[in-house]
Write a protein that binds this DNA or RNA. Sequence first.
DNA 1: TTTAATTCCGTGCACGTTCACGGAAATTTT
DNA 2: AAAATTTCCGTGAACGTGCACGGAATTAAA
Lengths: 350, 350
Amino acid sequence: MAQNEKPTIMDITRLTGLSKGTVDRVLHNRGEVSKKSYEAVMKAIQELGYEPNVFASMLAKGGSHLIAVLMPEDAPGSFWHLAATGMNKSKDPLLTGGVKVEHFGYNPTDAESLRAAAEKMRDSNPSGVVIAPMFRTGTEMITSVLRELKIPYVFIDSKIDDSGYLAYFGMPMYRSGYLCADQLTGGRPVNNVLVVRIQRDLQGKSDPTVNRRAGFMDYMHEHCPDCVIHNIMIDPSDPVGIEKAMDEYFEANPDTHHIVMFNSRIHLLVPWLDKHPQRGRRVVGFDNLEANMQALSRGAVSVLICQHPDEQVAMAIQALSERIVLGKHPARRDNFMHMDILTRYNVDFY
Amino acid sequence: MAQNEKPTIMDITRLTGLSKGTVDRVLHNRGEVSKKSYEAVMKAIQELGYEPNVFASMLAKGGSHLIAVLMPEDAPGSFWHLAATGMNKSKDPLLTGGVKVEHFGYNPTDAESLRAAAEKMRDSNPSGVVIAPMFRTGTEMITSVLRELKIPYVFIDSKIDDSGYLAYFGMPMYRSGYLCADQLTGGRPVNNVLVVRIQRDLQGKSDPTVNRRAGFMDYMHEHCPDCVIHNIMIDPSDPVGIEKAMDEYFEANPDTHHIVMFNSRIHLLVPWLDKHPQRGRRVVGFDNLEANMQALSRGAVSVLICQHPDEQVAMAIQALSERIVLGKHPARRDNFMHMDILTRYNVDFY
DNA sequence: TTTAATTCCGTGCACGTTCACGGAAATTTT
DNA sequence: AAAATTTCCGTGAACGTGCACGGAATTAAA
């Protein structure tokens, strides 16, 4: 081993009198080596401070692992479509050389489509899986199989009770509601708040925004106990219905100046907001969808709180890659992403 | 080339009838190849969609380039110390296998120390350099040498007029002042604002915060024309002097409720702020120093606008690595980082 | 003790690039 | 036309690891 070069496997062989093959076997502890040799090699590794050369390793094993992403699929401009862009945004140009990513989409309102996607996913024989769980029981079936096959998996967006996941990347939903309330009120007393919600059939579906709403309500109780919180329900597929609902509400409550939605669909209100401009109104929503950001820079929306679904995916892939390629465990198992506050004055550099 | 394997250099040789060596020469366009063969190879590359195997490449050329970071050095808890942590935060575990990073620190108030650091830096024979420029003329001397030696360099934090830099990572200073004003006032009329500044001898030193102040003033003119903006100067090394200055100011102007600083030192005011709590006061500062973030979660400071000096360093190293190792040019030359808004409600997950 | 079974280990090629070296081919000079 | 350049190109040995194969050493069975 030259002066300041890194030690290689061959240095270990020289120190132990053993051969490449044996050293390799203990490095990947795949057995077929005597206790005596095993310890000798371990000792040598310690002494030399040996670290495997990732480049040689990747070259030899011939690249291309597959990471499967099991995640809802939705139209361009939607939350899940934004998340999907994170698959190609892997920070790591070198890891991407050895890792392929494939998206297995499913319909977030149809448990059966999850089954089908999982089926295809398993056929692709992945080395790691990213899961955005929408249905608890369906997800449990998948993870139990993965655990049996010793395929590592990580959750994004939300997670289910489970002991075997490698990591989780998501937003602290309760706290995001708290933050949202603070941004909406500016920490000052407010009389009326309108919460716009989406009606859906919740059969068996876990809705993470309930936690967000809880955080919101708690903040309001603590800081704004006298504020009246109104709710209206809308159907995202019915634009005229939305405008009608808004008109009706504001006819009855003309002195409401604060509007909030807890999901990523604040852009649905933009047509109405544009038609009814109003000074001093404050509108807060979530997630950096293209439509939302446009509304923000035009001033229709005041604040957007962003959880970066795309970054969640990217980090999940990163964690899996490091696990698969380098054998590393992530530093933290549960990773709560930063909540970004976006206004019209910092949205440009996003 | 097997069915869905990636094409290699050998595939190109088969297609062109040339040899490894020649193909390699055109890939790294280092001459010694006829026009005819050059074009043949280029055509084959195009057709096959050839991309070099990074792992094989790194292995063959034998790792370990050096990236030098020429950046002020300061005490723990300071702006530049935070920036320095970004050197080890390289996103890319594989790149770090082939790249070493070394910090050459200098005293940001002493132009001569920059010379000394640059000297040492040159002796280390780096493959790439990250520069945080504090002195214009000193920096120009360095970059001209680097250009001559064809060593790529990138600026962080601020940049000087220069045609040869590979990339720049920094904050949009003017816009950050604008954003700051919006966060301070909440978009509502304000009567008095106190700007706390640091007195220093500006001989030859470029102070990027002047742009920030300009953005701040412009916002105030546009949105708050009647507001009076007061300035006081403090000496960071004199804590009692700071408290005295604050006391004096507030004795004369008891109805000021908005305080702002344009550099990273808002924590200097915390002792005074703690002693004089006041409901409805708003304090805005910059940068995610540990001390600043503590002040934020305690409520002494209302908002922190963060430019992530550590991420700037990390991205600079990333860009240089990709250039050196992969020969890639960065997507954008001037990169304005996102400005994060931190309040006590989202600081925990930072 | 011999043979069979098992456990353990070394050898050698493969992965795709890089680069120094030497030599063939083309061009220029005598 | 031969010699001297110059231009261009092919060869082959690294780089460090992974893994299949076969064989040696050890233990168990006969």
